[in-house]
């Protein structure tokens, strides 16, 4: 097991990601942050909070998207995936949407998320923010726009992200299996 980010590093990275987001979307009026259920939401909660703190805006469009029904492996695994809640309480039509997920691996989750997203309208643009980018393991041509850390890993390894809100610590580790 290798620690990729400890508590301090993780929080510096989150601050940087939030600042980069604001740098690209100064007014935030036409911007929406959407976390991917279930694990991306822990990251997007933090990012949305930090963005509010920095800018002082009371309101930013922030939603959660479940992609279970858009997966391409409904029938290739033996278990049925349990859906989480989708909550997008605003129109994404002509918005700049930033999809947020914790780990980018094969890219298939993000592909499904883009399918799910367009069922809510036609965004002006879609960007991707991830905490950990496992490069060279992509199965579809998807790249992040905002990256916390890029790592080299092999298929059998696993990246685990711990959040203080649910795991009582902030930490990202790489696990050999």
């Amino acid at each position: 097991m290798k620690i990729l980010l400890d508590h301090t590093q993780l929080n510096i990275t989150l601050q940087r990601l939030a600042h980069q987001l604001i740098e690209n979307h100064i007014s935030l009026a036409d911007t929406a942050i959407i976390g991917i259920q279930p694990r991306g939401v822990w990251l997007s909660n933090r990012i949305a909070g930090i963005v509010k703190d920095i800018t002082g805006y009371q309101h930013i469009d922030y939603g959660k998207l479940d992609i279970t029904f858009y997966r391409d492996d409904v029938h290739s695994t033996n278990t049925i995936h349990v859906p989480s809640q989708t909550h997008v309480p605003f129109s994404i039509q002509d918005k700049d949407v930033i999809l947020v997920d914790d780990v980018l691996h094969t890219g298939r989750t993000i592909r499904a998320a883009m399918d799910a997203l367009v069922d809510f309208g036609r965004p002006r643009s879609v960007e991707l923010m991830v905490l950990i980018d496992r490069r060279f393991s992509r199965e579809v041509p998807i790249q992040p726009d905002y990256t916390g850390q890029t790592i080299d890993s092999i298929m059998t390894q696993k990246v685990k992200v711990y959040w203080a809100e649910k795991d009582s610590k902030d930490e990202v580790v790489l696990i050999d299996q």
Partner: peptide, 14 residues
């Protein structure tokens, strides 16, 4: 979850 899908403009999932 499906009830929520049925309240969207596009009431269909793939």
């Amino acid at each position: 979850n499906f009830k929520q899908v049925l309240q969207r403009p596009i009431k269909k999932v793939p």
